[in-house]
Amino acid sequence: HCSHIRPPSPDTFHRRQAGLIDALLSVGATAFIAEPGSTGHYFANVSLQDWRLSERPLLLVIAPTEGSKTSLEPRIIILTPKFEGTRARLRLLLPSKRPVEFVEWPEDENPYNVLSRHFHNTQDRNASLTAILDDPMRLFVADGLSEAGWTRGNRQSQIRMIRESKTEEEIEILKCANEVTLLAIRAVRQNMYIGMRESEANEWMKQALVRASRCTQRIGLALTIFAVNAALPHGGAPDKILERQDLITFDVGGTLHGYWSDVTRTFALPESHIPSRHLEIWNVVKEAQNAAFKVAVKGVKAKDVDRAARSVIEKAGFGEFFGHRLGIGIDLHESPYLRGDSQDHLAVGNTFSNEPGIYIEREIGVRLEDCFVVEEDGSPLLLTSGVGGPARSPWIM
């Protein structure tokens, strides 16, 4: 399904790096520093799949070229343990217009001092060192940089804004990842039967994702919950046998070229006999999802999208059982979020998960989830629209 979708090109990474350098120059920062992770992946193709975190820090550093007032050729620096230097050069495929600078720190030296010394040796020795640090950086790494003379800048929000506005290239990846996930859910449903266990259905779901793995690359989650167990949003109750009166919830996601899908369906089988109260709850959740989608246009506050869904559920008498939020991208959950306290305004290129749910412990849990993007004209577009989009009823998904 996604064989035509290519990963981000080197030119894409160069544009992202240029945008990052422009942000650094605008605030007078020396560098942006990150550990392997989603932000490292976004700017330089350095993800946790490429390099696992350990007590020995490996850091990605992106900095303006000394004396440059433009972002044409950022410096890409990798601070690596010396004994891992060769592996870092072989394993990390870094898109850079300039030769990547690999700075090795020996076991008997402080890595952060080694990085500071490298900067002082390659630019004005008297210049102060100010770094914008990636938000998820571990505390001991941030503290180590501070002790080595780095002043921490406070403009992480500018870095987040670069990632929050998805390009057409990113949107096409996200679309295909979400489409193939929904197709996998539908394929598993066709073979399910009354009397099977949650664990069996979950294994089928994992197998479906494995078959799609040439498209999705990595399975992120395959959550399968029946009936009352779905009242706990992430499950955890004993393995249940599917009965005729039970609704089924699949919450499924994987990644394509590092970008996440996240699709949830609560549904019934053709032979199911769902209690009328549970069908009422399903319809309320569906109405809430529709309400949120209708108001999710450019310029609207994220909290107002949450409020649109919340109002429907409160009016139906289920307000205390409501849950709703989330954004999506390289991180499964990333800003901006559809949250009741969010002051963020929806902008072109923002992507969100529209995931209202009602969770009544010891009775039932229902949620529906479809991701969407705010398009150039300011309107929302479902990332699953290419394969039929949202569920229409518990039997039509």
Rank of each mutant, 00 (worst) to 15 (best):
residue 246 D to M: 03
residue 249 T to D: 04
residue 282 W to H: 01
residue 278 H to Y: 10
residue 234 H to N: 09
residue 286 K to A: 08
residue 221 L to S: 14
residue 250 F to V: 11
residue 286 K to W: 06
residue 226 F to D: 01
residue 260 W to I: 08
residue 240 K to A: 15
residue 251 D to N: 07
residue 256 L to V: 07
residue 262 D to M: 06
residue 282 W to E: 01
residue 230 A to G: 05
residue 269 L to W: 03
residue 241 I to P: 00
residue 260 W to F: 13
residue 246 D to K: 05
residue 280 E to D: 14
residue 230 A to E: 04
residue 262 D to K: 04
residue 245 Q to L: 07
residue 254 G to W: 00
residue 220 G to P: 00
residue 256 L to K: 12
residue 278 H to E: 14
residue 249 T to Y: 06
residue 272 S to V: 10
residue 243 E to K: 15
residue 286 K to L: 07
residue 230 A to T: 05
residue 247 L to D: 00
residue 292 A to G: 12
residue 257 H to T: 13
residue 284 V to F: 03
residue 264 T to G: 10
residue 259 Y to P: 00
residue 285 V to R: 02
residue 240 K to M: 15
residue 217 Q to C: 06
residue 250 F to K: 01
residue 271 E to Q: 15
residue 285 V to M: 03
residue 290 N to P: 02
residue 280 E to G: 03
residue 263 V to L: 09
residue 268 A to W: 02
residue 231 A to K: 03
residue 248 I to A: 00
residue 228 V to I: 06
residue 255 T to Q: 15
residue 251 D to R: 02
residue 257 H to C: 09
residue 279 L to N: 13
residue 263 V to C: 09
residue 264 T to C: 11
residue 254 G to V: 02
residue 237 A to T: 10
residue 254 G to R: 01
residue 272 S to D: 08
residue 238 P to A: 14
residue 220 G to C: 12
residue 276 S to D: 12
residue 290 N to C: 13
residue 247 L to H: 04
residue 265 R to M: 09
residue 263 V to A: 07
residue 281 I to A: 00
residue 236 G to W: 12
residue 244 R to D: 05
residue 267 F to D: 00
residue 277 R to T: 09
residue 244 R to S: 08
residue 222 A to Y: 05
residue 264 T to L: 02
residue 255 T to C: 08
residue 285 V to D: 03
residue 229 N to T: 06
residue 261 S to G: 11
residue 217 Q to V: 04
residue 264 T to Q: 08
residue 274 I to Q: 00
residue 292 A to K: 01
residue 263 V to P: 00
residue 292 A to I: 07
residue 253 G to S: 04
residue 278 H to L: 14
residue 231 A to P: 00
residue 279 L to H: 12
residue 231 A to Q: 07
residue 278 H to P: 01
residue 287 E to C: 07
residue 284 V to L: 02
residue 290 N to I: 11
residue 223 L to W: 05
residue 266 T to H: 02
residue 229 N to P: 02
residue 239 D to S: 15
residue 231 A to V: 06
residue 242 L to H: 05
residue 220 G to K: 14
residue 281 I to Q: 00
residue 256 L to F: 08
residue 221 L to G: 12
residue 237 A to Y: 09
residue 235 G to D: 11
residue 267 F to Q: 00
residue 287 E to H: 07
residue 285 V to N: 01
residue 236 G to F: 05
residue 230 A to C: 05
residue 278 H to C: 10
residue 217 Q to E: 15
residue 224 T to E: 01
residue 217 Q to F: 11
residue 268 A to M: 08
residue 251 D to F: 02
residue 225 I to L: 10
residue 283 N to F: 11
residue 286 K to N: 14
residue 278 H to I: 11
residue 239 D to Q: 14
residue 272 S to G: 09
residue 262 D to T: 07
residue 285 V to Y: 04
residue 230 A to R: 04
residue 247 L to F: 11
residue 227 A to M: 09
residue 232 L to S: 13
residue 236 G to I: 10
residue 278 H to A: 11
residue 223 L to R: 10
residue 234 H to W: 14
residue 230 A to Q: 06
residue 233 P to N: 07
residue 282 W to L: 01
residue 272 S to F: 09
residue 239 D to T: 15
residue 269 L to I: 12
residue 271 E to I: 13
residue 258 G to A: 08
residue 264 T to I: 12
residue 222 A to C: 12
residue 244 R to F: 04
